[in-house]
Design a protein around this nucleic acid. Structure first.
Lengths: 116, 116
DNA sequence: TTTCTTCATCGTTCATCGGCGATAAACGAT
DNA sequence: ATCGTTTATCGCCGATGAACGATGAAGAAA
């Protein structure tokens, strides 16, 4: 099969669902043990600064800052600069939405689902 | 902070949860739009061969084979060779377990959760 | 046997991730 | 003004991921 033909097939809406990219991005943001730990750490307080998270993860500060950035960009964590500190706080609403993501996936994979 | 000190911190059970690695691996297996498409494609029939999936994804056969391998290794898809074909089938039970993963994560991030 | 189909695997290329140290900026404290 | 703290970002590196084409094996079909 040539690439052009594959592209043609790709354009068929079929199961595209279109939201797959967004869901995949959200899942990827969660698909790292350090980030899961960080999320739970953030759940302990209204807000944490980067240093607090560093202390609980055992990772370098720069590494933690990167993970936090990933979580912020995925929407799971809110960021607000506070003097020389940074206030990171968990967005439980956004986090709860991944449950809907999974539910939607499960629905799309339910026994009665069709490919149309 | 020196690396040895960070390692010491890391050994503190704290929020380790230990299952984070496994959950992260499962989520990583789902964190790709092509694999989400493939899962839904597999949901349409009792079993699909690789070729069928290729037709719906627009990707090269070798690429699809790789994605299927990832899904099989993550446990979401069952594999059984069938003559020159391969029978891939969705494991809905395994897929449903990610819902529990998410629920557990949400519980660990609930408002009342403590860092101990 | 020979041919065709289907598939997994290999090797390659390119991009991204994950981790680190170093550095500079911002700010409070002295 | 200077020092210490906290943070984000940069550059670097090794490892992994994603995609492809090519190849060979296994089996159906001719």
């Amino acid at each position: 099969m040539k690439k052009a033909d594959r592209a043609a097939v790709l354009d068929v809406p079929a199961l595209s669902t279109e939201g797959d990219d967004a869901m995949a991005r959200r899942l990827a943001a969660l698909a790292h043990p350090a980030r899961l730990r960080i999320l739970r750490r953030l759940a302990c307080a209204d807000a944490c600064c980067c240093k607090d998270v560093v202390a609980t993860t055992g990772l370098a500060q720069s590494t933690v800052s990167q993970h936090l950035k990933v979580l912020v960009e995925a929407g799971f964590v809110a960021y607000e600069p506070d003097a020389q500190r940074s206030r990171y706080s968990l967005d439980r609403r956004a986090l709860a939405m991944v449950r809907q993501d999974v539910d939607l996936l499960l629905a799309g994979c339910s026994a009665g689902s069709t490919c149309s």
